[in-house]
Design a protein around this nucleic acid. Structure first.
Length: 807
RNA sequence: GCCGAAGUGGUGAAAUGGCAGACACGACAGACUCAAAAUCUGUUGAGGGUAACUUCGUGCGGGUUCAAGUCCCGCCUUCGGCACCA
């Protein structure tokens, strides 16, 4: 008689062994082993604790890591928490506690829950982004950015609430503050900015060095939004000038008006010459109420205002055109001004219709009376220019080159790359983030904190709520603010803005390589040992921004000679959401949430782990069901109970095909992160063993190894009970034997006119003639062969399709 | 609105352009049991037919192909992102 399968008992036992023996602690160098870095995004430690989404990605990637270890790789699989950010600050405010306390408490529960899942993290390398010995280096790196000229103060716009100060986009609902419901506006503010656009070309081009999934590369490229075009200067007749960027220089003769951003400085400079300034001010007020999202939405009613008394000169033909302000033009994006060609841009078309502005068609080939003839419709079609002076008659493609040359020659234009991506606004007027380590001196300007004074720690304070004046809470602490200039020694003030949550998460994977180093953020030797990350897993919501920030950060460090790679991640994958049983996103308000801890109590962590892998295609969302979890528990029980079926003799002949198919399938499925079909391959093998009623020791051992990445506790226990070796960690992942998978005969479907009419058994290397003859002999099939055979399609090992003309 | 992804039985889902629905749940039936649970075995896309069999079937509408869930064009719906949530 065998023991009953008691998952909770087994799991506790092995978890304490792993903890005691530090089973998954990994050195930076291991003799004869190849290093492999497998990474999950470090989580934000919310008070709710671990949810099913974490369980899904952690257990699946843990399976990947465990399998790689059995393939004799030296695997780095670390864990940490992303503990700075607005979320913790809000919880702290709500609970009247310090963010430090909230975060420490949450990290503790998080870690204990993670341990209950039996994840094979190297706990000796754990880091938290809010720890002083971590953010010291975040600050140090910021200083390197600053010294390189990549960090500077720029004017930006922020959401502004008259009562609560600066708000995040999330805190603004329908133009109102979510706390006090006052109307919010957009306000200009000086903020620290990292000049990411300087890396735009490399961020786009270097994607080709990575093996990210195609849709992830596409998302990144679209976010970067590189476009090639021309920057052109326009003289203002009443004095002054401004520039615009265009990718459609061929339409320059079609300009009938220009549009400036309402809040633009150019508008300010024209104040005395604008005859309807009052209206301009009113329009600016209205614009300030709108978010960028509302302003730039294509579908909305176009809005704008003519600047009376102002006109601009088109440098291509010297023609004078009206100048408008319009809220769809943003001051801090591009040059803050655009040229408008209503015949060849739909937005301009609608604007012109609304304001009764004339339209001049300059590209021939379509009627422009109802809608614009846009570039996606005229490019590459051989369309020619009209109404364009000396350039009329040229093709669009020729005109692009010739017009650009002419304008450059005249000294009023230059070629330029433009990016949809903007520089990274790096300031937050919040308490719970890394203080920006810069000092302002009246005489010396912005001066970095000397590196030996780092970290600039967050002072512990009573009140850390956002201030009403829009400054950081740190600005209210004189002991923090007042200091001396490191350069000249005069009294000076510290920067009081803190960094965004994105800061710490842009380089944490570097620190894992050398987490206890107090001389540098990580030694070059340690970084060389592990980088680039072989597999980086995270949520779909991070495929543009976090991934881009981290890539940018590493590129800068690479240029400074501080890291050995300029692309941190080789592969990037993302897991889908776990939805509630109702197919909706799990949430408190929907009441469809499931607590993983309760499920572990009921069925064990191994069952939950297997279910999280089996629930569906890893990258797609899947609906929770406890029935599915039960099924996985049943699978593990069946494997456990199989002990009774084990025979000393190997059942080579009968099970060989099933075992080796399973080894092949499970191996390649884990490699390709197709965890769900890996589990189903194991189920098929288990069913086959039950059908047979017996299993040889070797085959059973292989089965246990195959399930071990997914269900490590039961696998370890069975390994011990069956005396297969000392520890499963010392075993080797099974290798399939191709010769066991060779079949002499196969079943080949036969179609008549594309419809399957029967299946014939033929030798695996049978030729077309042989297969066709066999098909003709088959009664099921031959009865459909009533006409003349006019065509035969034979795909070896796949299909025979006979096309018959019915007579 | 823009960018990215998805849509397949009663349910979760599989399918390098080649037998749609592997595997699992549920349901039904059988074995074991005094009985139930558990376990084991079998059946199970829909319509029609006593049956052999037959027609239909991968969000909707077209197309390419001997052959389309898969490729192309046009839609619809849902999810993620859109720069201060991270």
């Amino acid at each position: 008689m065998i023991r009953k399968y008691e998952p909770l008992k087994i799991e506790k036992k092995w978890q304490s062994i792993w903890e005691k023996e530090e089973t998954y602690k990994v050195p930076n160098h291991a003799d004869g082993k190849e290093n492999e870095y497998i990474l999950i995004e470090f989580p934000y430690p919310s008070g709710i604790g671990l949810h099913l989404g974490h369980c899904r990605s952690y257990t699946a990637i843990d399976a990947y890591a465990r399998k790689e270890r059995l393939c004799r790789k030296n695997v780095l699989f670390p864990f940490g928490t992303d503990a700075f950010g607005l979320e913790a600050e809000r919880t702290a405010i709500r609970e009247h506690k310090l963010p430090q306390e909230i975060v420490a408490r949450n990290i503790k529960t998080f870690q204990s829950q993670v341990k209950e899942l039996g994840l094979s993290f190297d706990w000796s390398r754990t880091i938290n982004s809010c720890d002083e010995d971590y953010y010291k280096w975040t600050q140090w790196q910021f200083i390197q950015f600053f010294k390189k000229g990549l960090a500077e103060k720029q004017e930006t716009t922020v959401n502004w609430c008259p009562n609560c100060g600066v708000l995040s986009n999330e805190e603004v609902e329908d133009g109102k503050c979510c706390q006090c419901h006052a109307e919010t506006t957009q306000k200009a503010k000086q903020q620290w900015v990292l000049k990411m656009t300087e890396y735009g070309d490399r961020l786009a081009d270097d994607l080709s060095k990575t093996e990210y999934l195609d849709h992830i590369k596409t998302s990144q490229l679209n976010w970067i939004g590189k476009s090639e075009g021309v920057e052109v200067d326009f003289e203002i007749k009443q004095g002054g000038k401004f520039s615009i960027f265009t990718t459609c220089i061929e339409t320059i003769f079609g300009i009938t008006f220009m549009v400036l951003a309402p809040e633009s400085k150019i508008v300010d400079s024209l104040r005395d010459k604008i005859k309807n300034w009052k209206e301009v001010e009113e329009y600016r007020k209205q614009t300030a109420k709108k978010s960028e999202f509302d302003r730039t939405e294509m579908n909305k009613e176009k809005s704008g205002l003519k600047l009376e008394g102002i006109s601009a000169i088109n440098p291509a033909n010297g023609k004078e055109v009206d100048v408008y302000i319009g809220d769809f033009v943003l001051a801090n994006y591009g040059t803050g001004a655009v040229m408008a060609v209503p015949t060849h841009d739909q937005r301009d078309f609608e604007f012109a219709e609304k304001f009764g502005i004339p339209k001049i068609q300059v590209i021939d080939g379509a009627d422009v009376s109802e809608k614009a003839f846009e570039k996606q419709d005229y490019l590459g079609k051989g369309c020619k220019l009209i109404n364009s002076g000396e350039f009329s008659g040229l093709t669009v493609e020729d005109a692009k080159v010739k017009i650009t040359e002419k304008l450059i020659e005249k000294g009023v234009a230059r070629k330029k790359h433009n990016f949809k991506m903007r520089d990274w606004i790096f300031s937050r007027q919040r308490y719970w983030g890394e203080p920006i380590p810069i000092i302002y001196c009246e005489k010396c300007g912005w001066v970095p904190v000397p590196e030996n004074e780092l970290p600039i720690t967050l002072p512990k304070v009573d009140s850390y709520e956002p201030t009403k004046d829009g400054e950081s809470p740190l600005s209210a602490i004189p002991e923090f603010v007042n200091t001396v200039c490191p350069k000249c020694g005069a009294s000076a003030k510290r920067e009081t803005d803190t960094m965004p949550g994105w800061a710490g998460s842009s380089w944490y994977f570097l620190r894992y390589c050398d987490p206890h180093n107090d001389k540098e953020f990580a030694s070059m030797d340690a970084l060389k040992a592990w980088l680039p990350v072989a597999l980086y897993n995270g949520g779909n919501e991070h495929t543009t921004r976090h991934l881009l920030y981290a890539r940018f950060w590493v590129k800068v460090l690479y240029d400074l000679g501080l890291v050995p790679v300029d692309e941190p991640f080789k592969k990037r994958i993302s897991q889908g959401l776990i939805l509630g049983t109702d197919g909706k996103k799990m949430s408190k308000s929907a009441g469809n949430g499931v607590d993983p801890r309760i499920m572990i109590d009921r069925y064990g962590a191994d069952s939950l782990r297997v279910w999280m892998s089996f629930i569906g295609e890893y990258s797609e969302s899947a609906s929770w069901s406890e029935e599915g979890l039960k099924a996985c528990n049943k699978l593990l029980s069946r494997i456990w109970n199989m002990q009774e079926m084990v025979t000393e003799k190997s059942e080579e002949s009968e099970l060989a095909f099933a075992v080796h198919s399973a080894i092949k399938k499970v191996t390649s499925d884990i490699d390709n992160t197709k965890f769900n079909t890996a589990i189903s391959a194991i189920m098929i093998l288990v069913n086959e063993i039950y059908r047979l009623g017996k299993v040889g020791r070797e085959d059973y051992k292989n089965l246990i190894l195959l399930i071990s990445p997914f269900a490590p506790h039961i696998a370890n226990e069975l390994f011990e009970v069956m005396k297969f070796g000392t520890k499963i960690e010392d075993a080797t992942w099974p290798v399939f034997d191709e010769s066991k998978l060779v079949k002499n005969e196969i079943e080949l479907p036969v179609q008549i006119n594309g419809k399957v009419r029967g299946v014939i058994t033929v030798s695996v290397d049978a030729g077309e003639d042989e297969v066709l003859a066999a098909a003709k002999e088959n009664k099921e099939i031959s009865k459909y062969l009533t006409g003349n055979i006019i065509k035969v399609i034979f795909v070896p090992k796949k299909i025979l399709n006979i096309i018959v003309k019915i007579v």
